[in-house]
Design a protein around this nucleic acid. Structure first.
Lengths: 120, 120
DNA sequence: TCCATAGTTCTGAATATATGAACTATTGAA
DNA sequence: TTCAATAGTTCATATATTCAGAACTATGGA
């Protein structure tokens, strides 16, 4: 098992970030890790595992987020500890992550379809 | 040739936008169409065609941008007229497009490696 | 009507993604 | 130590997406 790779902040690309966040599952994972206001929260697989995603697939998703430079993973005992790299990314691409996470929130909060137009 | 499809603004998704803009060519096309400050500029294939991308591939890229809701295409005589849908998208996801286009600018302007730090 | 231009659609090859099965690393007991 | 449990990675391969050449379509002249 080779050690986890994390790109240097200067090697993080917009395309890489976009690609990593173009998958609903990864956006959900990342939004969860990044938390509100993009603070450095930690997370584990629990929230997403409930959605019946195979662990090999999840592992790949985490790898994608890691290699895009969006999260940092460190082994803590038997499990993984993931933190967002929002701070670093923000120095290079100011406001980008915040805008994406916010847009994701807007979208998921608007999901419940408005029961037949609430008639003014 | 079926008529071009454009999603309703309410059907535009963050994932769709992310995916469409996860490709360097499409980001370039879109940045070109959206122009500075995300104004409603038009564009044609010229700028990108120079980069020797086959027209079938370009057509697919434009289709991807269209179906993600990022641009609107209208036939004008023999050629296509593309405009950005920034305004519409901004009502749903405020600041998102601006942040992405800006990040793209930051990245492309930072490509020329800074000649050994300009010393203060 | 015929041609040129600008783009779309079709099709097969190349590439990427998803997932079950097998493997690795760490911890904690026996 | 050795063994088992937990958490995750890697491998192999089935499936899906993307790329690009060839053929096709729509429009506007000559």
């Amino acid at each position: 098992m080779r050690p986890l790779t994390h790109p240097h902040v200067d090697d993080i690309t917009v395309e890489g970030i976009m690609h990593a966040l173009s998958d609903p599952v990864r956006v959900a994972i990342f939004a969860d890790i990044a938390g509100s206001a993009c603070s450095q929260n930690c997370s584990n697989y629990l929230t997403v595992r409930e959605k019946e995603i195979p662990k090999s697939t999840l592992s790949q998703h985490f790898k994608a987020l890691r290699e895009a430079g969006l999260i940092r993973a460190e082994r803590q005992g038997v499990e993984m500890h993931n933190t967002s790299r929002c701070g670093e990314i923000d120095t290079r691409f100011p406001g980008l992550i915040a805008a994406i996470v916010n847009a994701h929130k807007v979208q998921s909060s608007g999901k419940k379809k408005p029961a037949k137009r609430p008639k003014k």
